[in-house]
């Protein structure tokens, strides 16, 4: 499973983009999905520097592909509106953070991420994400949208 309740942070307190990425990386580390927080964060920030992963609609999808990742991971957070240098210039309040191992480990998780990316373009899905109140809710939304497994 790419995501579970322990990989969800609702109303995450974050002072900056980097802070948010650090806090989510810590969650992934605690769950054993990544083996080197600094290295993973560096990879995500490196990707961020190419151009922002704030894709618009209030959504950011920071991601990193590095061998600091043990197994593919998806993290979700809601935050107070914050700047992410998004493509549309608007602040973001939803974060999906992704980690993928450097070496290819099958394509199931990649298919899920592809499907998630497509879903994020749809307003009803984003509304559903914004209305979750517990991590279990979030997992349920993912399940309803066939994003837990393919």
């Amino acid at each position: 499973m790419l995501i579970n309740e322990h990989l969800v942070a609702l109303n995450l307190e974050a002072t900056s983009k980097e802070d948010a990425i650090r806090k989510l990386a810590a969650l992934a580390y605690k769950e054993g999905r990544i083996n080197d927080q600094d290295k993973y964060i560096e990879s995500v920030l490196h990707r961020e520097a190419e151009y922002s992963t704030g894709v618009g609609f209030g959504v950011a999808i920071p991601h990193g592909r590095t061998n600091a990742v043990n197994e593919p991971v998806l993290l979700f957070a809601t935050v107070k509106s914050m700047d992410w240098q998004s493509l549309d210039g608007e602040p973001i309040d939803l974060i999906f953070m992704i980690g993928v191992p450097e070496e290819e480990t099958g394509e199931t998780h990649l298919r899920i991420l592809a499907a998630l990316s497509r879903k994020l373009m749809k307003a009803p899905f984003r509304e559903a994400l914004r209305s979750v109140t517990t991590p279990a809710d979030l997992i349920e939304v993912m399940r309803e949208n066939d994003l837990l497994s393919i």
Partner: peptide, 16 residues
């Protein structure tokens, strides 16, 4: 380049 998210979001946006 990473082919993880933007590829598919852009595809969806164009389709819509």
């Amino acid at each position: 380049p990473t082919g993880i998210a933007h590829t598919y979001m852009a595809a969806e946006a164009l389709e819509e």
